[in-house]
Amino acid sequence: MVKYQMVALATVLLVSFVSLYPLVYIVATSLVNEQEWIDKGGLVLWPSHPTLLAYERLFAGSTFVNALKISIERTVVGTIVTLSLTTITAYIASRHHLPGRKGLIFCILLTILFPSGLVPTYVVMKELHLLDSFWSLIVPMAIDSWSVLVLKQFFESMPKELEEAAIVDGAGEGRLMMSVMVPMSAPAMAAIGLFIAVAHWNAWFDALIYVNDKSLYPIQLLIRNLLVNPELGRYFNPINVLDASNRVSVESLKMAVVVFGTVPILCVYPFLQKYFTKGVYMGAVKG
């Protein structure tokens, strides 16, 4: 038993180290100047002289600030739009008396099994005149089919007594959804909302395809461009700064951008973690 515990502990510590190592490297590299980065051969795990110079360089230019703004706006607006439309669609699909309900569910399943593809989606966006606009980042993800099916199951698992009591009190379908179904499904909606927010925050390929205006680039696309073309990082360093201790390496700039692309969404998890466990008890009736 003791040997088993030691092996399990060693395994957990090893997995934790492997998981934390990239994060430590990213944060540490973002906190060093070019001179220290050169002295340590590009491998920095603990900065000797931490500096926020890389972050100062990023915020000194409009490119990074605008990309961060677009990502925040996209995540907030996209999550609200997607969660709202997904909830409405799931509620409609959960109504057994709805004419054509099976056909609607079939169409939802069809979009999961057979995605539309890049070219048809691009043509639709072009015909809607949404290319090179903020809404080109929102509309393609306006409804999440998988989340529709999950919420549909939650709505169907609700105690029928609650629904019948609301109907007796004169509640219509809209009132029933907003006053009974949605509040009862709050844990499930919070979990799904988190997944949607993460998807919007991490998305960059749609911006690469639909957007040519650099002022609409999200932070993830900026990270991608820096990784593909490291020379872009030179624009964040003033040309007249010759002292390496007052400059930051391109690698430090990339890591600083990665920190802003990773940490904000990680901070959301602790606030929504409790809803994952609450979702297990959905539909329970207390006597």
Rank of each mutant, 00 (worst) to 15 (best):
173 E>A: 13
134 F>K: 01
152 K>P: 01
175 R>D: 09
139 V>A: 06
178 M>W: 15
188 A>H: 04
193 G>Q: 00
140 P>H: 03
193 G>L: 02
163 E>K: 14
187 P>W: 03
176 L>I: 13
141 M>S: 15
158 M>S: 10
183 P>D: 04
166 A>H: 10
187 P>K: 03
190 A>L: 10
149 L>W: 03
193 G>W: 00
176 L>E: 06
190 A>G: 07
152 K>S: 05
182 V>Y: 03
193 G>F: 01
136 S>Y: 00
155 F>M: 09
188 A>D: 05
138 I>E: 00
196 I>K: 02
193 G>V: 10
183 P>A: 09
159 P>D: 08
147 S>D: 04
193 G>I: 09
194 L>A: 06
170 G>Y: 11
152 K>Y: 06
190 A>I: 15
191 A>H: 07
190 A>M: 12
159 P>K: 06
175 R>H: 09
172 G>R: 01
184 M>N: 14
160 K>S: 08
180 V>P: 04
174 G>I: 14
193 G>M: 04
194 L>T: 12
192 I>K: 00
179 S>H: 12
165 A>S: 15
179 S>Y: 10
193 G>H: 00
166 A>L: 11
165 A>R: 12
131 L>N: 06
187 P>F: 03
170 G>P: 08
153 Q>C: 09
171 A>E: 07
147 S>L: 03
149 L>I: 15
193 G>E: 00
161 E>W: 08
152 K>V: 08
168 V>C: 11
171 A>D: 11
164 E>S: 12
134 F>N: 01
152 K>L: 12
164 E>T: 13
191 A>V: 15
133 S>Y: 02
164 E>D: 14
159 P>H: 10
137 L>N: 02
162 L>N: 06
191 A>N: 12
192 I>N: 02
147 S>F: 02
145 S>N: 05
192 I>L: 10
154 F>M: 12
194 L>Q: 01
142 A>W: 09
130 L>C: 06
157 S>K: 08
175 R>A: 13
169 D>Q: 07
137 L>K: 00
168 V>A: 09
178 M>F: 15
185 S>D: 08
154 F>R: 07
130 L>N: 04
165 A>I: 14
149 L>K: 01
179 S>L: 14
149 L>N: 03
167 I>H: 04
163 E>G: 15
135 W>K: 06
168 V>D: 07
176 L>V: 13
151 L>W: 02
173 E>T: 14
174 G>F: 13
171 A>L: 12
130 L>V: 10
154 F>A: 08
134 F>H: 01
187 P>Y: 04
185 S>I: 13
169 D>G: 12
189 M>K: 00
188 A>Q: 03
157 S>D: 13
157 S>M: 10
161 E>C: 08
145 S>W: 00
143 I>E: 02
188 A>P: 05
175 R>T: 13
171 A>Y: 10
139 V>D: 05
130 L>R: 02
173 E>P: 05
166 A>P: 06
194 L>K: 02
160 K>Q: 11
195 F>C: 06
169 D>S: 12
142 A>F: 11
